[in-house]
Design a protein around this nucleic acid. Structure first.
Length: 236
DNA sequence: GCGACAG
DNA sequence: ATCTTGTCGC
């Protein structure tokens, strides 16, 4: 991929936590909630982060998939020194640099990026998936495993059942049942993806597991579980 | 002041 | 996130 398709993800950041929150507020104004991709998607890339050396090394994984068949086309792992601790609400300041390294390893950019974490379902509207989108210009959406902010009702028991995730009087995402008897996923737009599209796209990437394929495969690469444990077949 | 708090 | 095997329930 072109070496400099990504802009500085933290422009003007003074390194402080207060400065990080101010920067988020400013970057959030650049998020577009209108679809900025052409359907049908041809490629989708999943991203996730893991750690090594007791947290000293951040490990980001990317898996490029054929959006129609869900077959993996290409995958990479980027490893860089960890620079920040985990602070709720500031996840992107810890994990985004590694994700951008992984993105740069791809031969071509994906039509859309799926990131493990939240998009606009964030206190200041700039979760890691939204931050990734603004920094790269790529359409993106977040798939989280638990709520950071917002309220919601319990979605129905069937795959595809969903409820709006609301925060301060407006919808910021969806609570989606991706698999029966499993905790629902939190899906939210990152950048250049609208709420309805976020809800419509994810079910198309499900293959019998709780996590959609892009994120599930990236998760396995990021957290070495594939080197220690075999995969179990889908279904019941 | 107290509790909550993506990964 | 990470340390970690078997186990209970659908």
């Amino acid at each position: 991929m072109a070496p400099s398709t990504t802009t500085d993800p933290f422009p003007g950041w003074d390194g402080t936590l207060a400065g990080a929150r101010r920067l988020q507020a400013g970057l959030a104004a650049r998020v577009s909630l209108e679809d900025g991709f052409h359907a049908p998607l041809r490629t989708v890339a999943g991203f996730d982060v893991g750690f090594e050396e007791h947290g000293a090394v951040t490990r980001a994984a990317v898996v490029m998939l054929d959006a129609r068949t869900l077959q993996p086309l290409e995958s990479h792992v980027a490893r860089i020194p960890t620079r920040m601790p985990y602070v709720p609400g500031l996840l992107s300041f810890r994990e985004l640099p590694a994700l951008l390294e992984a993105l740069a390893m791809l031969q071509h950019p994906p039509d859309l990026a799926v990131i493990d974490g939240h998009g606009i379902a964030h206190p200041r509207g700039l979760g890691i998936a939204a931050h990734f989108g603004v920094a790269t210009g790529l359409p993106s959406l977040g798939v989280g495993k638990s709520v950071l902010v917002g309220q919601h009702l319990e979605p129905g028991p069937e795959r595809g059942d969903r409820c709006p995730l609301l925060h301060q009087g407006r919808q910021i995402g969806w609570v989606l049942r991706s698999k029966p008897r499993c905790r629902p996923l939190i899906v939210s737009p990152g950048h250049r993806v609208c709420l309805d599209s976020a809800a419509a796209l994810v079910p198309g990437w499900l293959a019998g597991y709780r996590l959609p394929e892009p994120t599930r495969l990236a998760d396995r690469l990021a957290s070495r579980r594939d080197h220690r444990r075999p995969a179990r077949p889908p279904g019941g």
